[in-house]
């Protein structure tokens, strides 16, 4: 059959453009990583990891930011996980198709789309000022917990939906109560999905600087936080601080900080993949 319209050429052109788009997207990723490694590689050493910020770029380190980020994440997880899983259980296992569930659902979808900086304003007013927690680790963690809560709830609901309803029926038919069914049968099966989703939610929180800066986390901390109410800093804030300075020495520090931040994220994501794969093996033998 003769090629009546030049559709073949147009199609090839389109494919080329689409491939170009992919190359641009993935090229960005590569450029980003290579750029950070080239700029910051020279600063990456033990001294950088164990030193506190300093006026002299070559003496500055990220100890307080790294430790701050770890503390912050542990606290955020401790607040957001139980509440997020509880909310998801309530929506999936208790209210069902009730109008209240619909209201909460739309509300959560909207909360997930609220800019993170708005959570910072909420944290500033609610935790820092009204509850009098100050610009502390605890106030930061609570702010972050509110930020990741919608993501944890959405991920948990998805995990709960993968548990077949026949398992629930089997348990109810033996006279188990709702909670016994959830605790003994549903949660263990959904746990890997919940953990994977929650780790990914937390890894999003790790990279967030805006809400912490807005609620007033400090950018220069030369000590490790020793209590829940101690002031703190975190990796993205420290990086932001260094990027914002004019001296190239600090820019190298920022790049090195970025490498550390990405390494932390890589570890978290690897953990999520590991949990998911282990769980799949167990479920399908």
């Amino acid at each position: 059959m003769p090629d009546r319209h030049p559709s073949k050429i147009v199609e090839r052109l389109f494919k080329l453009m689409a491939l170009g788009a992919l190359v641009i997207a993935l090229g960005t990723l590569t450029a980003l990583l290579v750029d950070a490694l080239l700029d910051g590689g020279g600063r990456l050493n033990w001294q950088f990891l164990t030193s506190f910020p300093s006026r002299k770029p070559e003496q500055a380190g990220i100890a307080s930011a790294l430790v701050g980020t770890i503390y912050l994440m542990i606290l955020t997880a401790a607040c957001a996980l139980p509440i997020g899983v509880g909310a998801a259980l309530y929506l999936e296992e208790y209210v069902g198709k009730h109008w209240l569930a619909r209201v909460i659902e739309v509300n959560i979808a909207n909360l997930a789309g609220v800019p993170s900086i708005i959570y910072g304003l909420l944290g500033l007013e609610l935790f820092v000022r009204m509850m009098g927690l100050g610009r502390s680790l605890l106030a930061g963690a609570l702010t972050m917990a509110l930020l990741v809560l919608p993501i944890v709830i959405i991920a948990t609901r998805e995990a709960l939906r993968t548990v077949p309803s026949s398992i629930r029926e089997a348990s109810y038919a033996l006279g188990a109560s709702r909670w016994q069914t959830i605790w003994h049968q549903v949660l263990p099966l959904a746990l890997p999905g919940i953990l994977t989703g929650s780790i990914l939610a937390l890894s999003r929180a790790i990279g967030e600087a805006a809400p912490l800066i807005t609620m007033g986390a400090l950018t220069y901390i030369a000590f490790l936080p020793d209590s829940l109410l101690a002031p703190f800093t975190a990796l993205p804030i420290q990086i932001f601080n260094w990027v914002s300075r004019p001296q190239p020495g600090f820019h190298a520090n920022a790049a090195a900080g970025i490498v550390v931040l990405l390494a932390v994220l890589l570890i978290m994501n690897g953990l999520a993949v590991y949990v998911r794969q282990r769980a799949q093996k167990r479920l399908y033998l």
């Binding site: 997207a25 980003l32 999003r204 600087a209 990027v243 931040l261």
Partner: peptide, 8 residues
Amino acid sequence: LAGVPTVV
């Protein structure tokens, strides 16, 4: 690509 922190 979507997971890279915005500060980066």
